[in-house]
Design a protein around this nucleic acid. Structure first.
Lengths: 329, 329
DNA sequence: TTGTATGCGTTATCAG
DNA sequence: CTGATAACGCATACAA
């Protein structure tokens, strides 16, 4: 490996001169040219570890994601990737496989790697999470969930739920089936649902049946297969677009027509909702922008700037073919 | 930050003793207990940079992916993630946004980070790619494409194409539409298609029309919308499952029935093919296993072991509802 | 502008 | 088993 020392020797200068060349640049035109050429020739590149060791600074940002095959996660990641690049940081991505133990591990691993800050896609948040995070002393930013005393950036899930509820009521529906996810995920499992319920429940004669799935399509498909034949509902609210796609599939396999037999909607605004038939009504979330914002916010955090504890991203109702007026009496 | 020195001082021993404690372990039970306690108390964790600097070894593996929102890529990544974890390596993932310049950059960035090896998801391979890679001197493994003088692990794309071709002929089809991708991606754009053509062309009276899309659903959808009304084909071969999903959508929007008006198939075995109606016939690829294999192979490479230049992964025809016998005369 | 010397946190070598 | 010391590659304070 070629080091700053080799360069210095070959150029006949002190290594501090080479170092200066590399950093400030207070070097005479002559030596500059010499060093230029030698670096070119040898293909020298500075050793980041030595640098980090010295500077006590790594220029790295860590990202923790719960799983790799999530459409929403990946869109946020695109935004994160873009902004970290723009701001000159290097990204380290760790995957925790939706497993708490591995999340704890990863929090510590990243801290050990001396990343300057961490963006964590939060799912289920336990006190132990909060604890582990706080112990690291590293700036942390949660995405998707809020927690006492930790900065976060979240979706307006309650409002999203309310949008769907209001819309469905306007269409004339009164009987709903809500396909939810576990409450451990507060944002999706609780907030989103509560927004919907609060919009729908006050309406005279409305009913809501609930079933619970997990985030996988297979689970949602199975549940729907079993439950659709029994339900009184005319409108099916799915807690995510993935679930909606799976429920749509189950409905078709059971011989139902959407939206004739059931109206159906999801949350998220995934591309998939536009490539099934009928296309699925949903609430679209600004995932990419969220990623951009997250990095900006984290970097301010790293720089000890004052930043609001919680930032919220908006969202937008997207009406597609899977929902229709309810006009049978 | 608490260092080995602090520990040593507090324990009243030399820092080399602490270091030994941390590594080999040749320490008296007494000092061991003392150090144990202090480390526990202070929450000391070794500084990886100092370690790497000393050891000239980073324990990191770099991964270069062309984009974050690809189903196949992410499945391979899951495998890679699993195996790197198992083997005790840390992962650095970089995204190049399907952009050659950024690929060159990333190759060098990773080399600078002194990763011990790199797994690169190859798309289009130019001489400059090969060149840049070779200059780094870092062990490289290509996934998905092969290149002279660089180790790689690839799919049997030719065989996959042939499987679809043979199957379609058996169904009685003779007129085909092939929705392909640019040839710059040799594996998908050339090999896969060639396997199909070689299986189909020898058959009497067979015809193949070709159109080209890119890897995005939007592009495929638009092309299909324009081309389906004009085609003579009874079977549409799509170069990827994503394309197939988009073409299916276009066909439906145009009022066609699948498989009555057209049979349709893709490649890849993505989950999406199972959650549209009809489900789409495809060739399923062992993505996750590929990730596992890739890491194993790279690690052998890092260890200077002898490994075959090219490894191939098999694949499997998955017959679904989108294909049917052609029996109209 | 340039060079000397020192230290970042760790490991390895070699005496004791 | 333990301790002193050098070295990894780089940046910087300070002197020249």
């Amino acid at each position: 490996m070629v080091t700053i020392n080799d360069i210095a020797k070959e150029a006949g200068v002190a290594k501090s001169t080479v170092s200066r060349y590399l950093n400030n640049g207070s070097v005479s035109a002559d030596t500059r040219r010499k060093i230029d050429k030698i670096i070119e020739k040898t293909g020298y590149t500075p050793n980041n570890f030595a640098r980090s060791l010295k500077a006590q600074k790594t220029n790295m940002i860590g990202v923790m994601i719960p799983r790799l095959n999530s459409a929403s996660t990946n869109e946020v990641l695109e935004g994160i990737d873009e902004m970290t690049r723009k701001l000159g940081y290097q990204l380290i991505i760790t995957n925790s496989d939706q497993n708490n133990e591995r999340e704890f591990e990863n929090i510590q691993t990243l801290a050990k790697q001396k990343v300057e800050g961490v963006i964590m896609f939060a799912r289920e948040l336990t006190p132990e999470h909060i604890d582990t995070v706080k112990k690291t002393g590293t700036p942390f930013l949660f995405i998707g969930q809020k927690a006492e005393g930790i900065h976060s950036i979240i979706h307006q899930d309650y409002q999203a739920g309310a949008k769907i509820g209001t819309y469905a009521i306007e269409l004339g529906h009164r009987h709903f089936l809500y396909v939810g996810v576990p409450e451990k995920d507060r944002a999706v499992g609780v907030e989103r649902r509560q927004g919907f319920l609060d919009a729908v429940r006050p309406v005279n004669g409305s009913t809501v049946e609930k079933i619970e799935s997990d985030f996988s399509r297979t689970s949602a498909y199975q549940k729907a297969l079993a439950f659709l034949p029994k339900t009184e509902a005319t409108y099916i609210v799915c807690a995510t677009d993935n679930i909606a796609v799976a429920v749509l599939k189950a409905a078709k396999d059971l011989g139902y027509s959407i939206p004739e037999d059931f109206s159906l909607s999801g949350f998220g605004g995934y591309e998939a909702t536009a490539y099934v038939s009928p296309t699925i009504t949903t609430v679209s979330y600004p995932y990419r922008e969220m990623g951009l914002e997250a990095v900006k916010k984290l970097v301010r955090l790293i720089g000890k700037e004052e930043v609001p504890n919680i930032s919220e991203m908006g969202n937008e109702l997207v009406i597609n073919q899977s929902t229709a007026y309810f006009d049978k009496i």
